[in-house]
Each structure stands twice: as C-alpha cells, then as structure tokens.
C-alpha cells in the first residue's frame, strides 16, 4: 500500500491527487513505525508530516498551481527511461546487499519508548535537541522572509507596467471605502 501510494505520488499527473496520496503514504509509514515498536515516532510522524508538511504542500499547490504546467512530457521519454533503469539498478543493488549481509538481530525488548526518548533527549542528546529547536526557529524566520510580499509603493514606483498584486490594492480600497462609512 505504501509503495503503491509512493508510485502514485511520483507518476500521477494531477498535483492534488499526488499530494493526497503523499498523505496516505505518510499514514502508512506511521503504521510501519507502530509495527516496529516506535510509537512515539509514529505519533510524531502523523502530527508533523500529515498535519503540517502535507497541509503546507497542499497550500503551496493551491497557491501556485492555478495554471497547469503545459510542458508535461510522456512517461516513456528517454530521460525517464534512463532514470527508471538507474533506479531499478539501485534497487537491485540495495536488495542484494540487504540479503547478503549477516545481520545480528537481537530480540526486541518491550519498553516504554516515550519515557526512554524523553530521558535521552534531556540527557546525552541535550545539545542536538537545542540545536534542532534553533534550526526550526531560523527556518521559520527564513520562510516568512522569503514568502512575504514586498511593499506596494516600492513595487509600483519602479516599473511602468503594474505588477499583479491582487490582494493589497483591494485592501486599500476597502479601508478607504470603510472610512467615510465609519464617519457617517
């Protein structure tokens, strides 16, 4: 199910369909984590990937994908076939090395992973934990700076042609129209 969903993510034409299939893949991965006794990571996977990253991707698709990109190429173009052959070779190589390696499997011990992860995060992994929080802060600030719009006067002054800024002028009209009605 996970693999079919992943293939659909890559191969489907429609971006919205592949985004929803990506959510399905994330939920299936969370199920695999539960099978691997990693319940905290499964919960974090559902919360972060399905709740945040997938919604963010859907937002980006809704914002960006008004016109469908016309330059869709066929599935069997030479670039795709070469890449598919390369990936199939990589997969064969990986599975050969997986099946030829003598793994020293130990039997899983039942433990409370949430308590254990909490102890380790605030014990030996305290510095990476703090660095990860700082990384999240930096990426949040950077994303806001990258995605914010420029000021309207600076943009309209420099160019003769009016740039398409659908929200801001309508907002100003609303405020100027709302002012006299407020006085009345």
């Amino acid at each position: 199910m996970v693999l079919g969903g992943a293939a659909g993510v890559v191969l489907l034409r429609s971006m919205v369909h592949s985004a929803f299939l990506l959510g399905l893949v994330f939920i299936g991965m969370a199920g695999l984590y539960v099978l691997l006794n990693a319940d905290f990571v499964a919960a974090a996977q559902v919360l972060i990937y399905v709740g945040a990253v997938n919604v963010l991707i859907l937002f980006a698709i809704m914002l960006v994908n008004r016109r469908l990109p016309s330059g869709d190429q066929k599935i069997l173009s030479p670039r795709n076939t070469v890449t598919g052959a390369l990936c199939a070779g990589l997969f064969v190589l990986l599975s050969v090395s997986i099946f030829n390696t003598p793994w020293q499997v130990q039997s899983p011990v039942p433990m409370n992973t949430v308590i254990e992860i909490g102890k380790r995060f605030f014990g030996e992994f305290l510095l990476p934990f703090e660095v990860a929080s700082i990384l999240l802060l930096i990426s949040m600030v950077g994303a806001i700076i990258l995605a914010q719009r420029e000021f309207v006067p600076a943009v309209t002054e420099e160019g003769g042609e009016p740039l398409a800024l659908p929200e801001r002028p309508r907002d100003e009209e609303v405020t100027t129209a709302a002012l006299p009605s407020g006085k009345r």
């Binding site: 990571v41 972060i48 963010l56 980006a60 960006v64 999240l136 990426s139 806001i144 990258l146 995605a147």
Partner: peptide, 15 residues
Amino acid sequence: ITVAAAEAAVGLAIV
C-alpha cells in the same frame, strides 16, 4: 523529521 519539516517550510517559501 525536524530537519525535514524545516526543509519543507523553506523549500515551499522559495517555490
């Protein structure tokens, strides 16, 4: 997962 979330946010902002 943390780094992936940060990467997705910055990447979508760049897009």
